[in-house]
Design a protein around this nucleic acid. Structure first.
Lengths: 164, 164
DNA sequence: GCAAGATTGTCTGTGCACAGATTATTTACG
DNA sequence: CGTAAATAATCTGTGCACAGACAATCTTGC
């Protein structure tokens, strides 16, 4: 921790700020991986939101369709757990998909508490188009990283996620 | 994209789920670094919040005190930009610190639109205590990573942050 | 069989991040 | 000088994530 500097406020002159006041964030991100992670995720999330703005599906809805396509009909609970989306958020997510006619809430035959969320035939093309946009999405979000660095990132995130 | 499976719902039996329905997230995190990043950050943020729950300062307030201590009095604008905290959030953040008597809103001598947020003598010990907790905080948040992996993470996040 | 607890989907309220409008002040320009 | 544009702090409203409560239904222990 550096000694507090004398009460010098931002100078309106063009001198290069010996205290590093204008590049302070870089230094902070160097010594605080937690802050760096949070701020970088904000940047990535913003990029994702921009990219998805014009499209038909939100990211959550895209993931729901993908999981249903991969493993078959699921309860909202299963979708929530595996996609790490809160149950109460999943409600609105499925609402939207149902309104668009991409999924149906059928009753689970053996557990009438649960739905069996099921894909409709209309979902196929929509999901396929969304999937086709993923590579471009990742390229924009991770422009700064090489392919090898993206794999490293994936590995590190996997380790963090594994310990809950 | 795997072919849609037949309409088989979650079986109540104990058979090991050939479809991988119960480990679906692991597969998803492997192929979607963006999702992995967002979910891992949620995990880290939760850990941080738990750790900070009993303490006097929020993470944002801690960072404000640290920056003021490092570079001297700043306007809220400078704090917002460098700490990547929204201006409108910074207001409440400084409010809290002022109520606790740790900073004062003095007027900037050459720009009466801006404040000169200034540390009080009481801030020293509080900041020092907060700083002393950081290593333990990081250890909890990144239990899953070795020291080398944490440095790698810091480097990758830095690259993402550099391109804005 | 039945009472107690767990689970599913839903709803509500809180807190945070973000965009936009507002006011006071400063800077730029004709 | 004096008007227009830019900036600092603030306030308001929106959208999202999360915790907790709730009713309906299932499961478990006795």
């Amino acid at each position: 921790m550096a000694a507090p500097q004398p009460s010098r406020l931002t100078s309106p002159s063009r001198e290069p700020e010996a205290g590093g006041r204008d590049r302070y964030f870089s230094r902070l991100a160097q010594e605080r991986p937690d802050i760096a992670l949070c701020r970088a995720t904000t940047v990535v999330t913003r990029t994702l939101d921009e990219e998805l703005a014009g499209r038909q599906l939100t990211m959550a809805q895209h993931l729901v369709l993908k999981m249903l396509s991969d493993v078959g009909p699921c309860s909202q609970q299963e979708l929530s757990e595996q996609l790490r989306i809160d149950r109460s958020v999943m409600v609105g997510c499925i609402d939207g998909l149902e309104d668009s006619g991409l999924v149906r809430r059928e009753r689970h035959p053996r557990d009438r508490r649960a739905y069996a969320v099921t894909l409709t035939p209309e979902a196929g093309p929509v999901l396929e188009e969304a999937e086709s946009g993923v590579p471009h999405l990742l390229d924009r979000a991770f422009v700064a990283l090489t392919a090898a660095e993206r794999r490293t990132l994936t590995r590190l995130m996997g380790k963090i996620l594994d310990v809950h």
